[in-house]
Amino acid sequence: MNGPLSIAVIVVALALAVWYLIRTALDRRPTNADLWSMLGLGALVAVLVVVAVVGLFIGDRPAEWTTFVGYLITTVAFAPVAVYLARLEPTRWGTLILGVAALTLPVLVLRLQQIAEVTSG
């Protein structure tokens, strides 16, 4: 969970969040590029989640592994849900939805890292 992939997700998400928040402040609706960027981030997150799921089968399981799985499901579903909601809202608020999602994803990844560190050994 602590690999370069997590760092990549966090950095990309924060960069996108800054972009979306600026676009919200400028009163811009989400463009197709904005929506595709979020889906791209979602794809990166999906890879991270697949790696984590494989890790559950071959490596040490986190002590609270049910919580871990719950977070994995939430994390992987997050970007698609945000894109779905943002498409329903072609105003500045749609852009803010993408911004909120891009800010929440790093938190989810950090929580996943915290839970993964405590293994039942």
Partner: peptide
Amino acid sequence: PTPAPARPRDAAIGTGLGRVLLL
């Protein structure tokens, strides 16, 4: 810039900023 249309009085509370709140 996206033109900001006037929000209708009877717009649903789950649209606009409401949709962000919903999320």
